[in-house]
Design a protein around this nucleic acid. Sequence first.
DNA 1: CGATTTTTGGACTTGCAGGTCCATTTTTGC
DNA 2: GCAAAAATGGACCTGCAAGTCCAAAAATCG
Lengths: 203, 203
Amino acid sequence: MTRALTRKGEATRARIVAGAAAEIRERGVDEVRLEDVMAHTGTSKGQLFHYFPDGKEGLLLAVAQHEADEVLIDQEPMLSNLTSWPAWLAWRDRLIERYLAQGVKCPLNGLLGQTGRRAPGAQAIVTGLMWRWQKAITEGIRHMQSTGDIAPDLDADRAAAALLAGIQGGVLLLLSTGKIDHLEAVLDLTIDSLRAGARTGGS
Amino acid sequence: MTRALTRKGEATRARIVAGAAAEIRERGVDEVRLEDVMAHTGTSKGQLFHYFPDGKEGLLLAVAQHEADEVLIDQEPMLSNLTSWPAWLAWRDRLIERYLAQGVKCPLNGLLGQTGRRAPGAQAIVTGLMWRWQKAITEGIRHMQSTGDIAPDLDADRAAAALLAGIQGGVLLLLSTGKIDHLEAVLDLTIDSLRAGARTGGS
DNA sequence: CGATTTTTGGACTTGCAGGTCCATTTTTGC
DNA sequence: GCAAAAATGGACCTGCAAGTCCAAAAATCG
C-alpha cells in the first residue's frame, strides 16, 4: 500500500517532516506557510504534495506524530526506570531541564488546536502520547509499591493520572507565563506526597 | 479617548463579543470567519471594523478577555470562600460540573495558540487570569492555615501553584481525551494531601 | 541499455477571508 | 428641529497561500 518509496524518497520525506517540525517549533503553526517549509528544506511544491497527498493537513499530522514521539524519547532512559527515589528525582530533573530549554516553544500545543477539530487523527496522536506517558508513570509507581517504598493500597493509576495532569498543567503555565515554577512545584509536591505514603511498609 | 459609544453602540459591541465567543466555543477559533460572526450576531462588516479597528485581532482579544473573566466568575462564590473542608469540596464539585458540561469546548485554548505569538496582549490576559486564580487558591490555603486545618509551615503559594497546574492539566487532558478522570484525580489527591498536612496543629 | 516508475521543479489557478470605503440612517445634544 | 457625531449596510478590493498540473530528470530493475 504505502510501498513505493525509494531510499531517496524516504530521505526527502523525512527531511520535510523534520524541517517542518523545526520551523513550527520556532515560529508557531499558524505562522508557517508551505513555502517556508519548502525554503527551509530545499524542496518544491511538487514534492510536498507528492509525499503528502492530503496537503498541509497530512504534513501537520506527520509532524505531530514525530513530535509526540520525541516527547517520550527525551525522557528516556529515566522514564522507564523509576525504580528508586533517586531515579524519580533524576526524571524530575530531566523534565525541568528539558522544558526550561524548550521555553515557550511547544510543538504540540498549537498543532492540536490547529488540526484538533477537523482531523480525527490529531486527537488520536495526543491521546496515544498521554496514554503511553501515564502508563510509564503507573509502572514506576507500581514498582515502588513492590519494593515497599510506596503504600500498596494507593491507587497507582489514579496517582499517575494526577501526576500527568500536573505536568501538563505545569508545561502549559510555562508556556503562558514563561516561568518554570509551577512545573517544579507540581513535581516536587506530588513526588513528596507519594513518598509520604511509604509509612505503611516503611524501610 | 475611548469615549464615543452611545448606549446602542455599547449594546452592539457587547452582542458582537458574546456572539463571537459563542461561535468560537462551538466551532473553534480557526473555523470562525468574520462572516460567521456577522451572520450569528446580525451585524455588518462595517460594524465589526467600527467597533474593532484592529480587525480580527482586536476582536479575538476582546473575546479572550471576556472568556477569561467568565472562567473565574463561574467558580464563584465557592472560589472566594475556601474557608472549610466542605467549602473546598463544594468548589471541587463546581469545577468538575462546569468542565464536564463544557466538554471539549475550550475557549481559551485555541485563542492563545491563535493570538499568542503575535499579540502581546493575549499573553497578558492568560497570565492575568492564572495569577488571579492562583491568588484565590493561595488565600484559601492561608485561611485554612489560620484555622489550623492546614499545617502552618506549608508554603501556601507553592501549594497553590501546584494545584493550579494540576487543574490546568486536568482540563487539558479532558480536552484531548474527553475524560474527566484526570481532573478528578488531581483535585481529590491534591486536596487530600493538603488535608494530611493538618496533623501539626490538629483539630 | 531500455522501459517503467518515482522524484523533482516550478508556473499557474483558485478561492476565500480580511480589510477598505463610502453612502445612508439613526442618535445625540443643544 | 437641526447640525454634528455615531451607527449601519454592503459593495468592492486585494493579497496570499493552498492546491493543481505537467513536463523534465533521476532512479529502479529486468
